[in-house]
């Protein structure tokens, strides 16, 4: 089965108008071949982001969806055009980040179907794919632990330093991480975009402030002198070239931390 972006590129070429449902994972809306809106079941949509901001209650959004649409939303002066565009832009890119890699679902195209928030900003498929790749690379650069994206996280009991500076999303994540919710569940609870929460989790994990709920020891264990001596002995005993691989997960952790620290020094 072709990947979702190949399918979308095909629909763009045919200048299709309608909705492409990707199983239960989400839906992509197109107008004349251009993407107008995208939803993904894993992350909050633009409605949730708008409601979480506190200016437009969800009930008002439902009423507008049924009658009046974005035209009335703007007329009522609750949001400006710039805000609406910015919100849709954020929500669509967030949905694309989680929806584009989805495989296994059989996409169905329904011609003519549209989304009520669509049509204020248009997206092209290559642009979306490029931006999603950039975002993925940024996550890995921040902290190369992809498992944290999907596992329940909790705040570390002790801070591995004396003081720390947090951004607004990081603060919300730090106090919301209860050891039961995964980052994407947290995003829904907080009304923040999924990517913003993933990024905050990775950054907090790099600082040693957030750990996977299953991890028992939040602080990096000191390498015992005995271990170091043994590694050195292994290395000189005609072992494989390159750094010694111990297989000990805490050791890899330590190296990653070290690399991160060195990178920050430059």
């Amino acid at each position: 089965m072709p990947s979702l972006d190949t399918l979308l590129a095909g629909l763009a070429k045919e200048r299709a108008t309608g909705a492409l449902r990707v199983g239960r994972a989400g839906t992509v809306y197109l107008d004349d071949g251009r993407i107008t809106y995208m939803t993904c079941a894993q992350v909050p949509g633009a409605e949730r982001l708008l409601a979480a901001g506190g200016r437009v209650p969800e009930s008002a959004l439902r009423r507008l969806q049924a009658d009046g649409g974005t035209e009335r939303l703007l007329e009522e002066g609750r949001v400006t055009l710039g805000e609406l565009q910015y919100c849709v832009l954020g929500a669509v890119l967030d949905a694309a980040f989680f929806l584009l890699p989805v495989t296994g679902a059989r996409p169905r195209f329904r011609p003519g179907e549209g989304h009520w928030l669509g049509g204020r900003w248009y997206f092209d498929v290559p642009g979306l794919v490029r931006e999603c790749a950039r975002r993925r690379a940024r996550l890995a650069e921040t902290w190369p632990r992809a498992d944290l994206d999907t596992s329940p996280v909790r705040a570390a009991r002790r801070m591995p330093g004396q003081s720390v500076t947090l951004s607004d999303v990081q603060w919300e994540v730090a106090i919301g991480a209860d050891g039961e919710a995964t980052p994407l569940e947290l995003a829904k609870r907080l009304g923040r975009s999924g990517y913003a929460v993933l990024l905050a989790v990775r950054r907090l994990a790099a600082a040693g402030l957030i750990v996977a709920a299953a991890e028992t020891e939040p602080l990096p264990r000191r390498v015992k002198r005995l271990d170091v001596a043994r590694h050195r002995a292994d290395a000189t005993a005609g072992g494989p070239l390159g750094p010694v691989v111990t297989g000990d997960p805490t050791d890899i952790e330590l190296l990653l931390r070290l690399r991160k620290a060195l990178e920050e020094l430059t």
Partner: peptide, 15 residues
């Protein structure tokens, strides 16, 4: 990515 709206101040017309 481009916007096709030209009302008051849209994200791209603001530039």
């Amino acid at each position: 990515m481009t916007a096709r709206e030209a009302t008051v101040l849209a994200l791209d017309s603001c530039l």
